[in-house]
Write a protein that binds this DNA or RNA. Structure first.
Lengths: 169, 169
DNA sequence: ATTAAATTTCAATAATTACTGAAAGTTTAA
DNA sequence: TTAAACTTTCAGTAATTATTGAAATTTAAT
């Protein structure tokens, strides 16, 4: 396999991984491109390499910046913006975890709490109890997951390795 | 909030959670319905409650069975199939982790290994080295995640709690 | 201030993904 | 073995999600 081919394959695989987990495929592909590129890239570089439109490139680069997976840098004498990809895959994972936790886990936790405000009447007292019990157990589980992810997203790599070693042993 | 309303809200929220993580929304909604239903349900019950077509209900129930989130049960004297939802949310999580690990993490790991077979020429020797180094570190990370998830998916709840307590403290 | 370069926005369009419903297939009871 | 009950399949359609490209806006050099 040639280098160009290998790079292409990585970009495609990373894109598929993303889209299977609810991350826009193009965004994941742009991220992959930055992961394997040492140099700074401009929006135009991304457009050319991935053959995508300006609007698409711009929007997804913005989101990657928000997620903390790209950094904006400037080249003196150049007017346009350049970007550099975060290369530390552990840091990348932590940032992705944090963002998705906020965007998806928290709304679910809020809903679960709200749902438990359900009122019961004489008629359905038992059914309501059973229901809130179930919601309670799901909430408890979700909160544990939430706490775990918070811990992970705040920890450094060595911590993670230590834990992993203990667990897998 | 009334019970019916609360149930509806749970089904919607669970559906959204699923679709944000790459799980078909209807499938997640059907799963939610089973989570809050003590009784056995038939395909028709699901169709009626969620207002979806027979084909849709059938296909998603099949997948939920494959994932181990529903069980097929029969009622004597009744010809049609009935299903019961797995209620243990910890077990549900473990099964989902296992399935998605197989479906999404493993293909990425395979791709990463394949990618590292890249050949270098005299010209691009250094670039290839840099590239394979990066692929190597991503692969290492992914394998750790894979092992961790395998451990999680094989462990019981008390193990998880113990770890969680240690971690969060 | 002017203007050219660069970035952002967003309505229109394309691509992807999910759903429907009817027909085909299967099972079971008599 | 027939036929009714039930399940599965899948081509056509609908809904959702992503992308384009050109116009509007912003930025920065002169």
């Amino acid at each position: 396999m040639e280098l160009a081919e290998a790079k292409e394959k990585f970009i495609q695989s990373w894109g598929n991984l993303g889209s299977n987990w609810g991350v826009n495929k193009t965004m994941a592909q742009i991220h992959a491109l930055f992961l394997i590129t040492e140099e700074l890239l401009s929006t135009e570089d991304v457009m050319d390499t991935l053959q995508i439109s300006r609007g698409n490139a711009n929007m997804n680069i913005r989101t990657l910046l928000e997620w903390g997976l790209l950094y904006k840098e400037s080249i003196k004498g150049e007017r346009k913006e350049f970007f550099r990809g975060e290369k530390d895959i552990w840091l990348v994972a932590r940032r992705v975890v944090r963002i998705r936790q906020r965007q998806e886990l928290e709304p679910m936790l809020n809903a679960l709490q709200e749902i438990q405000q359900v009122e019961s009447t004489e008629k359905n007292k038992e059914e309501v109890e059973k229901f809130t019990e179930r919601m309670q157990s799901i909430e408890q589980f979700s909160e544990s997951a939430d706490k775990f992810l918070t811990k992970v997203s705040k920890s450094d790599e060595s911590w993670f390795w230590k834990i992993l070693m203990k667990l897998i042993k």
